[in-house]
Design a protein around this nucleic acid. Structure first.
Lengths: 216, 216
DNA sequence: TAACATATGTTAGAATCTCTTACTTTGACA
DNA sequence: TGTCAAAGTAAGAGATTCTAACATATGTTA
């Protein structure tokens, strides 16, 4: 009995032969991601991530402050992926084209649907305010990138107040759409609305120059 | 020792003199609402709601299947309030006016900010899919009400596919805006955007008849 | 190469939570 | 008044988070 228990080997469990794991921190983050996607953040448990990673339930506390900190670490990686995907989604599209705006929205929504656990953990407001400077930073960087795209598209050399306002409109829209799509509200209550058309239409309306007649 | 413990009396705790509570179900729902607003749904515990209500931790299970069912019961009441407020927000505004659409959006956002716990519990996707026919029903009823307003505003006698599409755009927008506002993204990243103006501008853009030139 | 310091694990356990089972009290009604 | 169902309680099983104390690798330095 060397203390190297090999209990039952849950499916997908990482087999451990050495006392040291190799990169437990990364392993736990990946386990966390898998579990959050499978069962939702509310049902995520540190214990289960430990089981998946083949370590004791005390091990994570050498790498993370607490459960919340584990989730934050996982979400940070997710947001990096999110931004990377958005950037590569427009790589080959003509600069200044509204197609780029639409593609950014498309990708925003796609990420939310492909990694709903991560997306909702970040934006659903589930935990104790996952405030972390790294999250703040990447969020700002991503939005700034979008704002520059909007400016290009409008022919503005800089990010003006108007550009910022329209960028925020676009964000609000795709953000809400992401939640509603994942909640299946579009299929339940939207009739036969075509998602692709919806994205294009909204982008067009927001990028359009409306001679503002009534400000109410 | 009659089993009538009066331990410490946590602040705000309901004092219990009788064996029977009176209306424990309602009391627990209200305690649940308070706790969710105070500490977030993730930190809500049945035990604490019991402490607030002055009953044993086994009592709720006479009224609710489990913790999740308690949350669902509380959210249902919240969604009824949500709809009621939206309806009364437009009561005195001229029928068919875009002011009504804007007021609905305003109220949607206001509710999300006033009762973020409830709002995010319903839409943040926190729990094990809080699917309940009563929630479905009230959601549909509310959206239908909005669609009729949109139709009126566009001069359509019925809820056409186009009306539905625009209604869904509006919903997506105010929905996302609600999340972003609560996350303080507008104040952090929106510069000095005026919320009131934003709502009016978006309503106008979505209600406008854009001669659709390019559908891509 | 030996010895130490540090990082990274483990074991054991305290505090808390959800939910069940079996028992008790209460109020309503025949 | 007696009985029954509804609505509480007490006790406890099983899980969970996190801590404290201990164990083992790893790498640096004398």
């Amino acid at each position: 009995m060397t203390g190297m228990q090999k209990t039952a080997d849950a499916p997908g469990a990482v087999r451990k032969e050495r006392y040291h794991h190799g990169d437990l921190r990364a392993g736990l983050i990946e386990a966390t991601r898998r579990l959050v996607e499978e069962k939702g953040a509310a049902n995520f448990s540190v214990s289960e991530a430990c089981r998946l990673s083949g370590v004791s339930t005390a091990a994570p506390y050498k790498h993370f402050r607490d459960r919340n900190d584990m989730l934050v670490a996982m979400v940070i990686e997710g947001m990096v992926r999110h931004r990377d995907r958005m950037m590569s989604a427009i790589r080959d599209l003509p600069p200044g084209s509204p197609l780029r705006i639409k593609a950014l929205g498309q990708e925003y929504v796609d990420f939310a649907l492909n990694e709903p656990g991560v997306f909702r953990l970040k934006f659903g407001g589930f935990t104790d305010r996952l405030e972390d400077p790294r999250l703040e930073e990447i969020g700002h960087a991503t939005f700034d990138m979008v704002l520059r795209e909007v400016a290009d598209c409008l022919g503005e050399p800089e990010v003006t107040a108007d550009v910022r306002r329209r960028g925020f409109m676009l964000w609000s829209f795709v953000h809400g759409l992401s939640f509603l799509l994942h909640d299946q509200k579009l299929s339940d209550m939207g009739g036969d609305i075509d998602l692709d058309f919806l994205l294009g239409d909204v982008a067009e309306r927001i990028l359009n120059d409306v001679s503002r007649t009534h400000r109410t």
